[in-house]
């Protein structure tokens, strides 16, 4: 296959970027999208040009490092996969592919197609955990958890933190990401003691990072490589309003 790539090149967050066109030649349909970029980068390196910078690591769809907004879709046109799992057989010979970085105020560009997603880490740090120290915990089977609840919690826990939800949302909202963790821990008995405190801290941090609001369009759900459901957001809303409007305990910034 031969393809034309329109790739966003930007040296760093401070300088302006632009699209640059590249030819990708002799591409095998069995290659993954990132392997196709590897081929382009090898030829750029041979010419002494700077290779295209993009984030990637595990290349099996689980680390959440790869991104790329391909022809109007985060992680490309196929559902339920990441860019590293996207194979070139999805495209046709001679096609022009436009590759952009995730676009969001809260995700500043690092270089070319890589963005800074540390906002996600900060949201998790604000409360995405159960406050237990190592040791001194009860036996794993001490609290039975109904299978349906454990499975539902797992469905939320499967989030890989790639940021496709933000990239897909017309408002660059991070609510699917945030709600997935809140829902996971909110469903499990282990998460109950901090359930209402957690949702408040995480939402506050999310707002601080400059993400947009949710308008329930469902674009995030459609583009999520792990197919996390929009229902998570509703659960988060419920917990949040419950915490803010109906709980009596004092709400204050938690130390840890």
């Amino acid at each position: 296959m031969n393809l034309t790539l329109k790739v966003w090149r930007q040296k760093n967050a401070q300088t302006a970027g632009k699209f640059v066109s590249y030819k990708a030649e002799n591409i095998s349909p069995d290659m993954s999208f990132l392997e196709m970029l590897d081929v382009v980068n090898e030829s750029l390196t041979h010419k002494g040009d700077e290779p295209i910078n993009f984030d990637h690591d595990c290349r099996e769809g689980i680390c959440g490092m790869c991104s790329l907004y391909i022809n109007g879709h985060p992680h490309g046109p196929k559902r339920g996969i990441t860019t590293c799992q996207l194979h070139m057989r999805t495209f046709h010979d001679g096609e022009t592919i436009t590759i952009e970085p995730w676009r969001a105020e809260a995700f500043p560009i690092v270089k070319d197609l890589a963005v800074d997603r540390s906002a996600f880490d900060r949201i998790q740090q604000a409360g995405g955990y159960v406050s237990v120290n190592t040791g001194g915990v009860p036996d794993g089977n001490a609290i039975p958890i109904p299978k349906v609840i454990a499975d539902e919690a797992f469905n939320s826990a499967t989030c890989i933190g790639c940021g496709a939800c933000v990239a897909a949302c017309k408002n660059a909202s991070a609510m699917l990401f945030v709600s997935a963790k809140i829902t996971q821990l909110g469903l499990l008995p282990q998460g109950q003691p901090e359930r209402y405190r957690r949702v408040q801290s995480m939402v506050a941090q999310m707002d601080e990072e400059g993400f947009g609001s949710c308008t329930n369009t469902g674009a995030c759900e459609a583009e999520c490589p792990k197919e996390i459901k929009l229902t998570n957001i509703a659960r988060m809303n419920n917990d949040y309003f419950s915490a803010k409007l109906f709980r009596e305990e004092e709400v204050h910034e938690q130390g840890h």
Binding site: Y129, V130, V132, T134, G135, V137, P138, D139, G140, I143, P144, I145, P146, K147, A150, D151, A153, F154, A157, Q184, L185, L188, Q190, G191
Partner: peptide, 15 residues
């Protein structure tokens, strides 16, 4: 296993 369960790791469960 105990530690991970306490952290909210959603291990597979039986009915």
């Amino acid at each position: 296993i105990d530690q991970c369960v306490a952290q909210g790791v959603p291990f597979a469960r039986e009915y």
